[in-house]
Amino acid sequence: MAVGADANRVTVEDVSMVYDGSNGPVEALRAVSFDVEPGEFVTIVGPSGCGKTTLFRIIAGLQTPTEGAVRLDGDPIDGPGPELGIVFQEYHLFPWRTVAGNVGFGLEQTGMPTDQRRERVGELLELVGLEGFADSYPKDLSGGMKQRVALARALAPDPDLLLMDEPFGAVDAQTRTMLQAELLDIWEATGKTVLFVTHDIEEAVKLGDRVVVMDREPGRVQEVLDIDLERPRSRSDRAFGRYYEEILDRIG
């Protein structure tokens, strides 16, 4: 792992994505550029159709951009791998594996000895508040619990970057608020660099050190906003409201 000024820095450089549609080429992303500093929490917000999920998949190495590149520690990302922890909205847990089996999946690939792995899985389950559920199967968990498992699983191989695509979009409002707070705690405890995609402006302002605001047709960066607010942040705070309105104006 690279150590130095570039460690864990994410650089998105002029990323463009053009699909071949049935009515000619479709421009999904146009010259998207921004950086994520090591240890920073950056949210990407935009209306549906702004290409944020495409951008997510490109940064995750699941799709290759038509032009431009994404770099992690200065090296181009050319495929998914353990340096990138990915959390999807739909959890995508392995249903045939227990909670512990899901969290330990990435560690098994590294050939970590069993007892060491068990210990690490235990720590991660504690981190996400699921001690005692190690032997449960995903089908017996609620949405919020599944997403905690998915988060622990993504963190297990100690990735340089945690990438999340609308991770709390499928849970109820109460659970969502709780998960947001937990994620911030985990981020502070682990010092991970986090890139978090959402369509929810409130969520973007609440969580991010900076918010990348995207717009559509074609998908592009409108602006990158520094959120200069102490955490925990509250929607009822007047400064919070100003950020909210500003973003809403940009993409509304």
């Binding site: 699941l62 791998g81 353990p82 990915i86 995508h92 690939q109 699983r153």
Partner: peptide, 15 residues
Amino acid sequence: VSDDLLDVARSLGVE
């Protein structure tokens, strides 16, 4: 088999 599960496995180090 869901492509998403395969993506997850790749991102967790299955090469």
